[in-house]
């Protein structure tokens, strides 16, 4: 559905996007991660046809959006700006876009989206009087007003309170799972990406430095190991000396009564019986699971070192 091949964008001497290739399929939620200036927004603008590639292609359904206004009818967009007019009411804003997209059952669609986003009671108020969260919700309603098959979202929940963030997240998940909409999401929020994306690309200095499912990225970069939580009365040093006696243990790390043990690659020593035999009471033992943040930072730092 979205196919980006060897996409490059140069602004004078600045290389904003450097030879990116991506393929995103129907019903997939694809996240684009990266620091500020990594090239996320430029990539999105290139896909939307707002910018011309210096080289390479960015196609949606096999065609560039810039030259195909009829294809843009099937694409929903929420950029950093919500695309709303402050002097018009929430209802009039949606009505305007509904007319632009020539939605047949315009009034019902606008009403149902206002209800869905909880803005029904403020429908006649000017958008200028809305809070940031309300505008973002209305912006999201605007972006899905015309039943798009592809939705591109740039930082959809940036600056929103947790309640609205959850609402935005649930809406995105619902659109992807129920409506089979392809969602391309730019975000800084690693927690959000981890919760909703099937696949992610990590961008750095305009290049894709990693692109895979979160599960694959996690297994590729994770170090095998366990986290052991000791009983409150236990001496962590005693437990540490027992664990260190295992040859297959690479290293250990103690913090607040927790011992994080990293095994040598491919090894998985049975620590629990040894600890119990040594008379150490263990409250909990679990396999280490690295967060997306850990993976992201590791990939970014690894790339920095290689430079």
């Amino acid at each position: 559905m979205i196919e980006v091949n060897n996409l490059t964008k140069k602004f004078k001497s600045t290389l904003a996007v450097d030879d990116i290739s991506l393929k995103i399929n129907e019903g997939e939620v694809f996240g684009c991660l990266g620091h500020n200036g990594a090239g996320k927004t430029t990539t999105m603008r290139l896909i939307l046809g707002l910018l011309r590639p210096t080289s390479g292609t960015a196609h949606v359904w096999g065609k560039p959006l810039s030259q195909n206004p009829h294809l843009r009818r099937k694409v929903g967009v929420l950029l950093e700006n919500d695309g709303l007019y402050e002097n018009l009411s929430g209802e009039d804003n949606l009505d305007y876009y509904a007319r632009l997209y020539e939605i047949p059952d315009r009034k019902n669609r606008v009403s149902s989206l206002l209800e869905y986003t909880g803005l029904d009671s403020r429908r006649k108020d000017k958008v200028g009087t809305y809070s940031r969260g309300m505008r973002r919700k209305l912006g999201l309603a605007r972006s899905i007003l015309h039943y798009p098959s592809v939705l591109l979202l740039d930082e959809p929940s940036a600056g929103l309170d947790p309640e609205v963030q959850k609402m935005v997240r649930d809406l995105i998940l619902n659109l992807a799972r129920e409506e089979k909409i392809l969602i391309f999401l730019n975000s800084h929020d690693l927690d959000e990406v981890e919760r909703i994306c099937d696949r992610i690309a990590i961008l750095q200095r305009g290049r894709v430095i990693a692109c895979d499912s979160i599960k694959n990225l996690r297994s590729a970069s994770s170090e095998p190991g366990v986290v052991i939580v000791l009983d409150e009365k236990e001496n962590p040093d005693k437990a540490a000396s027992v664990i260190e006696s295992f040859e297959d243990v690479e290293r250990i790390n103690q913090t607040n009564g927790k011992i994080r043990v990293v095994f040598k690659q491919g090894k998985s020593p049975d620590l629990l019986p040894a600890l119990v035999n040594a008379g150490i009471r263990v409250s909990e033992i679990s396999r280490t699971s690295r967060s997306l943040e850990d993976i992201y930072l590791e990939i970014i730092h690894r790339e920095e070192k290689q430079k």
């Binding site: 939307l48 206004p69 694409v75 967009v77 950029l79 950093e80 695309g83 020539e102």
Partner: peptide, 14 residues
């Protein structure tokens, strides 16, 4: 200045 034009340019309007 409000950057709304960017959204409008992604609509079916030429």
């Amino acid at each position: 200045t409000d950057r709304i034009i960017e959204t409008l340019l992604t609509s079916p309007a030429t």
